[in-house]
Design a protein around this nucleic acid. Sequence first.
DNA 1: CTATCTGCAAATTCTTTGCAGGACT
DNA 2: AGTCCTGCAAAGAATTTGCAGATAG
Lengths: 142, 142
Amino acid sequence: MYESITERLKKNNYRLTDQRMAVLQVMLENKGHHLSAEEVLVEARGKAPNIGIATVYRTLEKLAGISILHKTMFEAGKYRYELSDNHTHQHHHFICLNCGKITEIEEDLLYSLEQHIENQGYQIVNHELKLYGYCPDCQTLK
Amino acid sequence: MYESITERLKKNNYRLTDQRMAVLQVMLENKGHHLSAEEVLVEARGKAPNIGIATVYRTLEKLAGISILHKTMFEAGKYRYELSDNHTHQHHHFICLNCGKITEIEEDLLYSLEQHIENQGYQIVNHELKLYGYCPDCQTLK
DNA sequence: CTATCTGCAAATTCTTTGCAGGACT
DNA sequence: AGTCCTGCAAAGAATTTGCAGATAG
């Protein structure tokens, strides 16, 4: 897994610098979590102390460009990045309006909906579904 | 329709200033379109010449706050606003990767998916689905 | 009259870019 | 060696905020 990622970097002529490895490690250690650039910076400094925010942004952008990461905006005006899971279709996200926790929803279940829309002449190559509500832990607090 | 909107503004103690009326008219004239704050500013200046961008933002924010408008981010780092249609659930959007046109998809079709997730203890109050691909007009250009 | 609203400009926040030096390969 | 990469600081872009004067109710 770790091997295949560095392979993919090499294939795209991306040099394996300490800073890039640090960012990659941070993302691997946070599999399933959605980190902002600033959060990645703080953790990456533990591995590459002098790394700057510009390099973090440049690295995240490159990794997202070759689908190693996935970039989404959950809250206003700020991107978050997560390790991509290589599935054909991107999974969905449930965002709790009370505690803010983001849960991944693995089931796709959009097939029939997309079929319906493609029958109208559209070709769908990707989708992004966000569900907002209250997670099981926050049901009682409402 | 127009009546009921001003009623709702009054109910929320929002003064009916020329600037607010101008923004509201622009949004009503662009029903079904998704405008950026800057685009609203340009059109609103035709009705209230001295209106500033800050007032446009403040007004759009207020109107979205009482669900008269709906605010979504389609492209990176920039919100777009559209007149809300008062349906229970928000409609979906198809974004063409070639021409950038945004098409509304009225069918909901998420019912069974949401049912499935609510069975796992979540309560869903809203959703946002964006489909990316190529619209009928752009099929040949691919 | 008085609380709310407005326009302006400055401030914020997130992200990108130019540049000169540094480091993979 | 040569290209790619980095950190810094400055620039950009979208949005928000402070303030003094203006205006709706």
